[in-house]
Design a protein around this nucleic acid. Structure first.
Lengths: 349, 349
DNA sequence: TTGTAAGCGTTATCAG
DNA sequence: CTGATAACGCTTACAA
């Protein structure tokens, strides 16, 4: 059942049907009676306009592409949710892509997205110019907004990971800790790099040399936190506090601590990152840094939609300005951090 | 840059370009030299075929719709991931929709999906015939597969929630518990209903009357588990074990238990549902039922793709058979359940 | 082996 | 206010 069926059934031309049901139906002059009839017939026939044809004709699909490393990660799930919400209320659909942090897949996805002529794409989780054929990309009017720091030009929404890490680390420092470990995720992630940097900065600000043995590279998983902690705890001069690159890692740390009979925070302090929903239901309640993932999503979508409304669809590589939205982060102090067990000893070689 | 640009740049007709680059490029007879030239020119120009036009012409979009209650829920995140993985390896894109368990939104999404002419859609999280205009839907060749029990006809993938709940409950019963509470999610969810049924069945099988005061309706959140437990624990004749509708609820239960100074499992046993990644890192490690969410996703996608390959695209309402894939569930016994504190007392009025 | 031309289902321009 | 009709970009008989 196509527009033509409706047209003939209503005894009008396809043009009229299009006017009655089309994109800017309300801002079109036509006899009320005619419109009513078209509407009714279309209703009776169960007519659903073909968006493909419409898009082809209008040169806009009302579809957004969203590329993330992994939706099954709570962090990105919130973001996806935010994007989806604002996109759909603005009348856009969103197609989802998982890269698994594989730059090759990123490139492939960007390619399919361009082929399907999405109006814009949001890339979260890091991308480099080399990860896709930017030259090709710029031939099409597809708009981009990035989430997080990146090597690409164009608008983006970011959070101050460096500052956030400085915040937690200072919190621990203020409590009297001097040997503070950092349980990181994959160092290839820009986010992780930044968090490590912030951690280092805070240490440096207190005149403490960063001990590379205290920075442990792993995954963003409980398992990784569990193993990393074991490593750290069996050291001669073990840390009195552990900052984790995310809350899942922190859960692993907590598990290992209780398995070793170590009390948190009395014997070792633990801090996380992200403030996922369980964090306040762990015992001890986890001190962590809240990241507004949902807002990151809505902001990114907002930035993109703004470009789409603003810019004419023809402007070839017109990727808007370099507008950067920096979203605030918040230290959530709960119960998992306290003063170190003994008064800080003299610095050891 | 369109097919015509490539054609003229290569000095051939658009048909030739289409043959060289089109859908069944390999199964087409043409002079190798010509093909090579087309390929090269298309490469130089950075040509990306317009999938919209292709879809319009071929009457298939290679897009799947996926409708879930909420991706930011770990359960669905796994499922989404599974769907996305098998779809993308089969060359399909997937557009994601969140209903928030709102039947109205479900209907709207189904509508947009039909308009965008997706080849098929996967609906997870419950739908009723009344939630959308099935009559309309059947006019278009869109295929459907459902996840979970539902009132719609057609293929689906399900898990045996009833059996699963029976399993945990029996586990507790075997341990000697007689007063077992159930902390449920929204009773409107079919999944929840089934889990409650299973719980009831197990009780009945042991000749225990189901006490409706022990079934607590709430959300699928930690918060809900926390509050529900408080309710339950302040009862005169309080339960010795609590089965939770999912692991997040169980986390809340654990939190309340330690806040009350109650030891798990010595004083009260707790069991969850889903086996999310943190479950084995809680202390005590959480006994729960593993649901293969990722496999549910891949299976659903598989069922759908199968229909798409099999069926001619014209078969109007041909929604395949009633094939139902029942995925296995597994009781994961860990440390959060043990025998009740005192020997079971005589049944109380 | 390759080119011509008729769709695919809309929208939009231009007359009437 | 409404009706033809030319795009939109690609695929696919049908011819050459």
């Amino acid at each position: 059942v196509s527009i033509r069926d409706v047209a003939s059934a209503a005894g009008v031309s396809v043009a009229t049907v299009s006017r009655a049901l089309g994109p800017n139906a309300e801002s079109v002059q036509m006899k009320a009676e005619t419109r009513r009839r078209v509407l009714q017939v279309s209703e009776e026939l169960g007519y659903r306009p073909n968006d493909l044809a419409r898009a082809l004709s209008q040169r806009r699909t009302s579809v957004l592409g969203l590329i993330v490393p992994d939706i099954s990660n709570a962090y990105y799930a919130g973001l996806v949710r935010g994007v989806e919400d604002s996109a759909s209320t603005a009348g856009y659909r969103v197609v989802l892509c998982n890269t698994d942090r594989d730059l090759g897949r990123l490139g492939q996805y960007l390619d399919t997205l361009v082929k399907s002529r999405v109006d814009g794409v949001i890339i979260a989780g890091g991308a480099t110019e080399s990860s896709f054929d930017a030259r090709v990309f710029h031939q099409y009017p597809t708009k981009i907004v990035m989430v997080g720091r990146h090597e690409l030009s164009g608008p983006s929404v970011q959070i101050d990971n460096i500052g956030a890490a400085e915040l937690v680390t200072h919190h621990l420092l203020d409590l009297g800790h001097e040997r503070i470990a950092f349980l990181a995720g994959p160092l290839s992630s820009r986010t992780i790099q930044d968090r490590i940097t912030g951690y280092g900065n805070a240490l440096a600000a207190r005149g403490i040399d960063r001990d590379d043995d205290l920075v442990w590279e792993g995954e963003l998983s409980e398992e990784s936190g569990y193993r990393g902690t074991r490593d750290l705890l069996f050291r001669a001069d073990r840390p009195t506090a552990i900052v984790c690159a995310n809350d899942r890692i922190a859960v692993g740390v907590l598990a290992m601590a209780t398995d070793c009979g170590l009390n948190v925070p009395e014997q070792v302090s633990v801090a996380g990152f992200d403030d996922v929903s369980i964090s306040s239901y762990l015992r001890p309640r986890l001190t962590t840094v809240a990241i507004p993932t949902y807002e990151i999503g809505t902001s990114a979508a907002g930035l993109l939609l703004e470009q789409l409304e603003t810019t004419g669809l023809d402007s070839p590589a017109g990727r808007g300005g370099e507008e950067v939205l920096l979203l605030p982060t918040q230290l959530i102090v709960r119960d998992s951090c306290a003063a170190p067990p003994r008064p800080p000893r003299a610095a050891v070689g």
